[in-house]
Computed example of a mutant assay.
Amino acid sequence: MKPLFNSKRILVFLLLPLIFSCSRRNLGYFSNYGDEKLLTEDITLKPKQPQIQSGDLLQITISDANPAAAAPFNRISSNNASSNESSTSSQEGYLVDENGIIDFPILGRIKIGGQTKAEAKLSLTNLLTNYLGNPMVTIRYLNYRITVLGEVNNPSTFLVPSERINLIEALGLAGDLTIYGKRENIKIINEANGVRTIAQLDLNDKAILDSPYFYLQPNDIVYVEPVTARKDQSSLTRSNITLILGVITAASLVLINFR
């Protein structure tokens, strides 16, 4: 007797619901750029200079034509005080307190919170001219970091030594989006001056290149939302899994009986 079903037909029958439940998605970036092989545009967006916030850890180095005169203004780590390393490599960080203030050698408590690095550099330079002939101030972040979470291949918190990073670079550090990442709904979470901002960007739209949130700020969080299929997948309970296993078992029995 010829079997009513064969294994290939039953496999197709079982996969049909999955095939028809999948909708077509745009997985590309900047999809609306068009078909131009070369497109040249003026860059109108300039990265926003971050403001120094409470909790920031800064490396501040003071130099002068007379190194001995500048030395008291550089706070050196006790572990490295006796070494021959340069003051830049052995400097301790200045932690900005909740009021935006740092404790600086000789100058005392200085408020730099809410200023950009350039503004803080100018403020310190003006104060140091009372002590040094030609003071030069260098400021760097020691904890400039961003966090990428959600549907990416390598979610984590990343330090940014260059102190400049955009959304595409951040996603690159995180190993790019998974196929379940919702490209049209990338959330950028920023907290500054007591205000929390949540911006939504669409990777399919080239307009994000001109968004004020395209360049990330220190401590920004990038969250990639999962698509509905991923949410449904993660919501399966043990009873759902048991039901699926039961269907597979029943299909296997049918195959055996018709052989």
Rank of each mutant, 00 (worst) to 15 (best):
Q51F: 07
P72M: 08
V96T: 04
S63W: 00
N80P: 02
N74K: 15
Y94G: 09
P67D: 11
E92K: 02
D64Q: 01
S90G: 08
K46G: 09
N32Q: 15
D42L: 15
D56F: 05
S63F: 01
D56A: 02
E41N: 13
G55F: 03
F73S: 03
R25M: 07
L58G: 03
N66F: 13
Y33W: 13
G93K: 08
L58I: 05
L39P: 00
P50G: 08
Q91K: 03
G93L: 04
I62M: 05
E85I: 00
G55I: 05
S21H: 11
L14Y: 01
L15G: 00
D35S: 14
A69P: 08
E85Y: 10
L15M: 10
A81Q: 04
C22F: 00
Q51C: 08
T40F: 03
D64F: 13
G34M: 05
N74I: 09
L38R: 07
I76W: 10
S89F: 12
I76D: 09
Y29L: 14
R24N: 11
E36T: 01
S82D: 10
L16V: 14
I62K: 07
S86H: 06
G93P: 06
G34S: 11
I43W: 11
S90K: 04
E98P: 01
E36W: 00
P72I: 11
E41I: 09
A81H: 06
S87N: 07
L14G: 00
P17G: 01
S31C: 10
S21K: 14
G55Y: 01
R25A: 04
S87D: 06
S21C: 05
N32A: 15
A68G: 12
F73R: 08
L16M: 11
S54V: 14
P47W: 02
L39C: 05
P47E: 03
R75P: 07
L18F: 06
S90H: 02
L16Q: 01
L38N: 06
N32F: 15
F30M: 13
L18V: 00
I62T: 06
T40L: 09
C22I: 05
L18R: 07
R24S: 10
F20G: 00
Y94I: 04
N80T: 09
E92T: 12
P47M: 07
K48P: 02
L39N: 08
Q49F: 06
S23E: 03
Q53V: 15
R75G: 09
S83W: 06
S31P: 07
S90T: 06
L18I: 01
V96R: 01
